[in-house]
Amino acid sequence: MSNNDADNALHLEAIDIRLQGTPLVAIDTRIEPGEVLTVMGPSGVGKSTLLAFIAGFLDPAFSARGNVWLRGRNLARLPAEQRRLGLLFQDPLLFPHLSVGGNLGFGLRRDHSRRDRYHAIETALAEIGLSGYADRDPATLSGGQRSRVALMRVLLSRPNAMLLDEPFSKLDTALREDMRSLVFSRIHQENLPTLMVTHDEADAEAAGGRVLRLMPPY
């Protein structure tokens, strides 16, 4: 491990993912804190597979080599829950058995007193314009509201980097703009290295960072 890997950048080192021996994705890059790297490509090209590998959910059908360095740790060797990567999915996936506040509490780390937890949840709700929504059933929220809660849930878990899996694709065009600016401003604010997978050019534009285009291997 070289010294400059111990910083806050997300270093994808010599990653090579294969499906039954056939090369699928190969990547070697550094994502600096606050930078958003966009990975684009047609469906089936392995964007989601790359994301699953980094997050720790790679299907056993694939074989993968390479290292994922973040803050001096090689994440590729750690179970998913110890990687501290905030993953935003296509769907907000709020837990239906918990209230809106409960979902945020689920994300919040344990090192808070009960009162601090309450305040942290209220503050997070206020930041996304949902003050007073803590006791609401997530099923009663609109699509945009749910996405915002999902974002805050991830941020409250204090991730070291963000992974975005087509996070805006299921939103209406009007909402998409708002959500994009919210997500990217929070990422810059928290100075998190971010990898975004998308097939929407507008996402890449809004992210404003480098764009990596994956090509089919044939």
Binding site: A55, G56, F57, P79, A80, E81, Q82, R83, R84, L85, G86, L87, F89, D91, L93, F95, P96, H97, L98, F106, G107, R109, R153, V154, S157, L163
Partner: peptide, 24 residues
């Protein structure tokens, strides 16, 4: 999906299952 959400939020697999999946 819920299991993956909970694990990326830092929950161990078993706790993720107990808190995020079992109630549903």
């Amino acid at each position: 999906e819920h299991l993956h959400v909970a694990r990326t939020l830092g929950y161990s697999s078993l706790t993720a299952f107990l808190k995020g999946v079992l109630p549903n």
